[in-house]
Design a protein around this nucleic acid. Structure first.
Lengths: 172, 172
DNA sequence: GACCCCCACGTGATTTTATAACATTATCGC
DNA sequence: GCGATAATGTTATAAAATCACGTGGGGGTC
């Protein structure tokens, strides 16, 4: 589902995925991969875009555009909404980040590189978000679409519920 | 999706918004069913709520809250945002309408009465919306959720693409 | 190198979507 | 009727997203 689990002692301040992991490592690695891919494909990972991706990787949770904007300002970038939205458009257009429609927020992609149609699990108590794979077009929806003559180009799948950590809290 | 034309005595396809059907009939029937269910379950289908449902049934497509608000004003109801949002909260809370997260808009439920986890097909060219059944929690997503210990309460499934009518137009 | 053009960025303003807060009115159970 | 509860009306404001327009940097082409 989400990031690889590192049994290392490294504390993970974040809850993407619902698993602990060595976060600093996962950020730098993801950034390098993004840079490599952009170089390969002639995409321009400009400073703002790179920073936004870095912020999302670092935070490791869904951030609203205006939260990102605040962080950009702190980092010395422009602070008007279009700055954030344009970077997010680029990043989501190329699959580096995903938009969580349900939250009007954005997360770094947890499966960079792989073409995939992502599905998200969103905790309604703590807003943690985990990414999973899905293939909605293969199931009942795909059948309905074929029957109706509808041509699916992209799907949004978001499950709302309670994450393991919050279930535990509730039990306690 | 279109307005009603043909008195097709045909299957009116309550499920697929891309099919022709006798619309006037489908509106009044859906309204009666909603009234019946509210009576049965002690829900209060007040004038505003009923009107909003009627409007959505009539339009037979996704409407934004402010579009609804305009129609409400025309009909002599209050015209401040909370009026529309409260009615929509009630209606969507009880499954009479669904929110299309992708469009920040609302549609009347096409499968009233049946408990269901709806999936939507949204035409990116004409914004038509059709409702289908889905069972995302049964597939890869459900598996991932179980593996992660995530408890799914509700799912949003929205497919974006091109509806049959717009495919035809493009071909022409 | 000089030029041009495209793309990205900076900025101000505006539009669209949604909620907070609080007073008033209608409805239900008794 | 009467009190509790739920729904509505209204004002104000917050949050999310886009428009419009000007500036500047980086590659090509010659």
């Amino acid at each position: 589902m989400t990031s690889e689990e590192h049994p290392t002692g490294a504390p993970a301040s974040a809850t993407l995925g619902f698993a602990e992991h060595n976060h600093a490592e996962c950020v730098t690695q993801a950034l390098s991969e993004a840079e490599a891919r952009c170089a390969r494909e002639g995409l321009r990972l400009t400073p703002v875009r790179r920073k936004v991706l870095e912020l999302l990787l670092q935070e490791h949770r869904a951030l609203g555009a205006y939260a990102i904007l605040d962080l950009l300002r702190d980092a010395g970038f422009g602070s008007q909404p279009p700055v954030a939205y344009r970077a997010l458009d680029f990043l989501s257009g190329h699959g580096f980040v995903h938009k969580i429609e349900r939250l009007n927020a954005f997360v770094a992609c947890a499966h960079p590189g792989q073409s995939h149609s992502p599905a998200f699990m969103i905790c309604r108590l703590c807003d943690a978000v985990a990414e999973a794979q899905s293939a909605p077009a293969k199931g009942a929806l795909g059948e309905a679409a074929r029957a109706a003559g509808f041509h699916i180009e992209k799907t949004v799948v978001e499950a709302e519920g309670v994450c393991p950590a919050c279930v535990d809290k509730a039990d306690a």
